[in-house]
Each structure stands twice: as structure tokens, then as C-alpha cells.
Design a binder for these strands. Structure first.
Lengths: 111, 111
DNA sequence: ACCTGATATATCAAAATCTGATAATTCGAG
DNA sequence: CTCGAATTATCAGATTTTGATATATCAGGT
């Protein structure tokens, strides 16, 4: 689109990881939670996107946190510094766009 | 992604048309304006997306408004009712997601 | 009239992304 | 120890994006 923008999926995944680390399906269910069921990440998109984001250095795998009794199938991820920066800039952009949407809507109604 | 979501590009295009009709490049420059230059729609994406959105019935071509002295090359478009509904539901979703981002950010800072 | 650069739309092949099915493994409950 | 759910992974096909190319019209200057 232009210089390096997050896809919608990448945006949602990074956001799901912004408060704490999660494993694959944990990310998917967090996204589903905060979109009230509107966004469902199927396995192809979920694991494919995680792989891509890890390759791009926006998130990184963590050693399973000892406290949670480990299910060895799970792979946990957290945001990298670059991932957090990318998320912040995307949040700013979306916030600007949303303001615009509200302004246009207000203009619309008053006409 | 799930049941019928707008792509980012579709979202931006519909938003650009939400206050009034515009022609192709007019849409692109409106998007560029309200994203402060971050989103630039190249010709392939611009005209391809317009075509797709028109086929899906989210926007429709209008007869050139007489008042603007006509450049016969330009093709003008406006939102359809379906397009406006799709935009509104996307705005709602993005607004929910942005609230979540702010909540997570607040939680993050206080830890 | 003529040239030139900007405006405007359109198309296409290649790249990137998304979808949905399939598969393999491990877990937990009964 | 069997069975359904959870978890990750991969792959082919569909959709979307990218960037180049093409064609035509416009506006300005000479």
C-alpha cells in the first residue's frame, strides 16, 4: 500500500500480544474476544501470519513461562521492540482515520 | 477473515466517498490527505478496488454533476446504501478495536 | 498548431496474503 | 486406554496488492 503497513491480521495479532505473551490459539481467541466474535483467525492465516511476523522481527518466541504448567505443544510469542513500535504507529494511523470518519459523519448529518 | 469484512483499501475508499462523490484520483488524493500521506493508492490498486467494490454493489457510478465543468475522462462514484452500511459497521469495529488498544496500553503503563 | 507535462483510467503479470481442508500430535476426561 | 478437543503445521487455490505499461485527454506555453 505504501511504506510497510501492517495487514489487518498483523494489526490484530500484535494488538493481542500487546499486554502479554500468548500462544497461537491464545492469540486467536483474544482477537475473537476483543472483536466480539467478528474476526476469526483460521489456522492457515493464524500460523502463517505468526511465522511471517516472526521472520520480520515484529514478534519473538519466548521460553514457556515456568509458572503456567506447560503444554509442550504450545509455542508462546511476545512483541519485540519493533513490533511494539509498528503497533503504536498503526494505532495512531487508525485513530486519525477514525476521527476523520466521525468528522465526515457529523458533516453528513448536518446537511 | 470472517463473514464479509472490508479490506483496508476498501475501508479507505468507502470512507473517502462518505461525504460526497469523487472520481478515481479524487478518491486517492482524499485518502492520502486524511492519512497524512501514509496511504498512497497506486493505479492498479485504486482502479482494481473501485471495479471490485462497484461489482459488489458498495459503490455506484454517478452521472457527472453538471456544475463541475466536466472532464470527460473522469468517472465519478458515490456510496450505495449497502456501501454506507458496510462502512458504518467497519467504523464500529475499528472503534471497538481502538478502545481495546488504549485499554491495553493503559494497563501496560501501569505495570 | 504544436509540443510537453500533468491528469485520468485501464490492464496485466508477479508477489503477497487469505481461505479452508488436511494432517499429525498431545492433552484431558471418562 | 479410548475419544474428542486442543495445538501446531502445511498446502493448493482464491483473492488482493504491487508496480509497470499503455492510451487518451487536458492545460499551458511558444
Amino acid at each position: 500500500m505504501a511504506t510497510h503497513h501492517l495487514t489487518k491480521t498483523a494489526y490484530y495479532i500484535l494488538l493481542a500480544l500487546s499486554d502479554r505473551e500468548r500462544h497461537g490459539l491464545g492469540i486467536a481467541s483474544e482477537v475473537e474476544r476483543f472483536t466480539e466474535g467478528e474476526i476469526v483467525l483460521g489456522p492457515g492465516l493464524l500460523y502463517g501470519s505468526i511465522k511471517r511476523l516472526a521472520e520480520e522481527g515484529l514478534l519473538e518466541e519466548t521460553e514457556a513461562v515456568d509458572s503456567e504448567q506447560a503444554d509442550p505443544r504450545r509455542r508462546y510469542y511476545r512483541l519485540s521492540a519493533a513490533g511494539r513500535a509498528a503497533l503504536q504507529s498503526e494505532v495512531l494511523l487508525q485513530s486519525r482515520i477514525l476521527s476523520e470518519a466521525q468528522a465526515k459523519n457529523a458533516a453528513q448529518e448536518s446537511s
